[in-house]
């Protein structure tokens, strides 16, 4: 099966050769722009500096450095605190890059979980097949990058169990998700293998309602809310880093808690 992560039409590499002079000119222009951005320093008080400036580049570099720091801080055995069932918020708080009215529910009958990358058994999964997998329940705090939080109770197969079942290469670096709402996301393998990282199918013991990711979503206790894609349609195990929806816009990739 063709990987759902690859573009349908791959550009011809020869295009690079055809356009080499133009590419070089682009780089020179970038250099000039970099020089100009020294002047942009003086506009700091204006409070925003464009991404191409040296300050923007420096901030991005520290952002990447912070990914590395968080990888070191991450403990694969430390569990997030769990809470009594009485504190579970029902229904959970909705959050996405669009409003709840714009949720496009997935069809249970036609939904398939596709697999790609460093996985031995890439046969797609149906809702019924997922339901046969062993389940774990966790009552954990959801923390949003914005600053709000709530206690939620999630159940589903641990991602580690699933990856082992399909023969994924657990030494690979990343697990990448594709979703029904066009919200790509990726996490590091140690987080994927953490005991509190689930492919959740239920909230508060009930089948996930449509707005919260039916039939399958990620729920990890070790990362900020936005690192938990909903309506998962494909999983890829890879050594290639792919930024997610918010990371492309400048949010921190690791975003560990």
């Amino acid at each position: 099966m063709r990987s759902p992560f690859r573009p349908d039409r791959v550009p011809d590499p020869a295009i690079l050769d055809d356009h080499r002079p133009a590419l070089r000119a682009l780089e020179r222009r970038g250099f000039l722009r970099g020089g100009l951005s020294l002047g942009a320093l003086t506009m700091l008080t204006g409070c925003d500096v464009s991404d191409s400036s040296s300050i923007g580049q420096a901030l991005k570099a520290v952002n990447v450095l912070n990914d590395r720091v968080q990888e070191v801080l991450f403990s694969s055995t430390k569990l997030a605190p769990e809470y009594p069932e009485s504190r579970v918020l029902k229904p959970p708080r909705f959050n996405a890059y669009y409003e709840i009215e714009d949720v496009k529910p997935l069809d249970r009958a036609t939904w398939r979980l596709e697999l790609a990358g460093l996985i031995q058994d890439k046969r797609p999964w149906t809702v019924e097949q997922i339901a046969t997998l062993p389940e774990r329940e966790m009552t954990i705090r959801h923390i949003c990058v914005e600053g709000w939080d709530y206690i939620g109770q999630w159940s589903g197969v641990p991602l580690r169990t699933f990856l082992e079942r399909v023969g994924a290469d657990l030494t690979a670096k990343y697990v990448v998700f594709k979703t029904g709402d066009d919200y790509p996301s990726s996490i590091d393998m140690p987080t994927a293998l953490h005991p509190q990282t689930l492919l959740a199918t239920k909230y508060a013991k009930e089948i996930l309602p449509d707005p919260f990711g039916f039939p399958l979503r990620l729920r990890t206790s070790t990362k900020l809310g936005f690192k938990n894609p909903k309506w998962i349609t494909a999983i890829e195990v890879t050594n290639t880093w792919v930024p997610g929806y918010w990371e492309k816009l400048g949010f921190n990739w690791f975003s560990g808690l």
């Binding site: 409070c47 925003d48 901030l59 991005k60 520290v62 912070n66 990058v145 914005e146 400048g250 921190n252």
Partner: peptide
């Protein structure tokens, strides 16, 4: 807004989590 450094949340966070070091 005139007291805020960074045009939006992603930039605010980048500044904050860099200057913190």
């Amino acid at each position: 807004e005139y007291l805020v450094l960074g045009s939006w949340m992603a930039k605010n966070l980048q500044w904050h989590l860099a200057a913190m070091w």
